[in-house]
């Protein structure tokens, strides 16, 4: 008990990890989190960092730097020295910066240290909605133009891309009601202010389990173990096959001119941390698919994500610039 108390004080005062004077991490590392406290990016990064601290033998001081859909954090990291002491901890959003004209850099201009995990988008609806699967929802929306209220998180957000994917296969007249995040939108769904909402599995799974909302669609090619009996959307809209699997992700990145040995050290640390049992359990329970990849594999993943997302929003008409301007290839 006394030890616990002492360690609290020590933690609050000096942060407890002992420092091994090796060549690379000779001082604290700063981790810049793109999103605010309490968000899912924040939670994932705070869960993985203590493990990485142990492997690296130094402290990772986490700081939330929000704003500009994450662009401010990204610019901040790129303005620092590429010495591996400033990490960018972010989600998928930067891959859309170029076509949405939010910034002229994205993850392809940085080095991925580790892509930790990826999420699966699903469709949820309020319990008393008169449809139980995608086909019924599409039929209902066609029969009642403008009546289905869909929650949205702004252009470029997950919901807009998922809706654009559906729209590329079948034209629907729905009313989309904007919220500033999937949390508030899912709350509104339970209050009946909206009817349907594309959301990432992890954010809504607990509400679904408790029977407060129902799943009507799965944006993937294969069924999901957490969602027995829900058909993948490719059964209803086979045309989506070439765009899937697609989903939001979390990753750690450094500036492009960071020395290779530093990147390797960081990658090892974070990939190892992603394999820790409690982190795995956290990801499983939230319905995220664990990845823990780096190097060429991670770069390919990023490129594929960027190509699908950029072209889908461009075709849906809310991109500000054409992906071609940046040499982003259309997905085959």
């Amino acid at each position: 008990m006394k030890k616990r108390l002492l360690s609290t004080i020590a933690a609050l005062a000096f942060a407890a990890a002992p420092a091994f004077a090796a060549e690379y991490p000779s001082k604290d590392i700063q981790g810049i989190i793109q999103w605010g406290a309490g968000g899912s990016t924040d939670a994932v990064m705070r869960a993985v960092s203590p493990h990485a601290e142990k492997v690296l033998g130094t402290d990772i001081v986490l700081t939330n730097k929000t704003g500009g859909v994450g662009a401010i954090a990204m610019k901040y990291v790129n303005a620092k020295k590429g010495d591996g002491y400033t990490l960018l901890m972010g989600a998928e959003n930067p891959q859309m910066y170029k076509v949405l004209d939010l910034a002229n850099i994205d993850y392809n201009d940085m080095i991925p240290v580790s892509i930790l995990a990826r999420g699966t988008p699903i469709f949820v609806a309020r319990n008393d909605a008169p449809y139980n699967n995608m086909q019924e929802m599409i039929d209902y929306a066609k029969a009642n133009p403008g009546k289905v209220k869909v929650g949205s998180t702004g252009p470029g957000g997950l919901t807009s891309i998922v809706m654009a994917m559906v729209d590329s296969q079948v034209k629907l007249d729905v009313t989309s009601i904007p919220y500033d995040g999937d949390g508030p939108a899912l709350t509104a769904l339970q209050g009946g202010a909206i009817d349907v909402m594309p959301s990432v599995l992890g954010a809504s799974i607990e509400h679904v389990k408790a029977g407060r909302m129902k799943v009507i669609g799965l944006m993937d090619e294969t069924p999901h173990p957490l969602l027995p009996g829900i058909d993948p959307i490719t059964k209803t809209l086979p045309g989506l096959e070439k765009l899937l699997p697609w989903g939001p992700f979390f990753g750690v990145f450094v500036k492009a001119d960071t020395p290779a040995d530093v990147v390797t050290k960081l990658s090892t640390a974070f990939n190892e941390s992603a394999q820790q049992p409690d982190f795995k359990a956290l990801m499983d329970s939230r319905g995220f698919t664990l990845m823990g990849i780096s190097g060429k594999e991670a770069q390919d993943f990023l490129t594929a994500y960027r190509s699908v997302s950029s072209w889908i929003v461009y075709d849906a008409g809310f991109a500000k610039k054409s992906p071609e301007e940046f040499g982003i290839k259309r997905p085959e």
Partner: peptide
Amino acid sequence: DAVTAVFIGALFIHGLNPGPL
């Protein structure tokens, strides 16, 4: 509010499933 949002994150990290269940 904003603080309870962080609490929810903390519960997740500690292996609980904050939610209606």
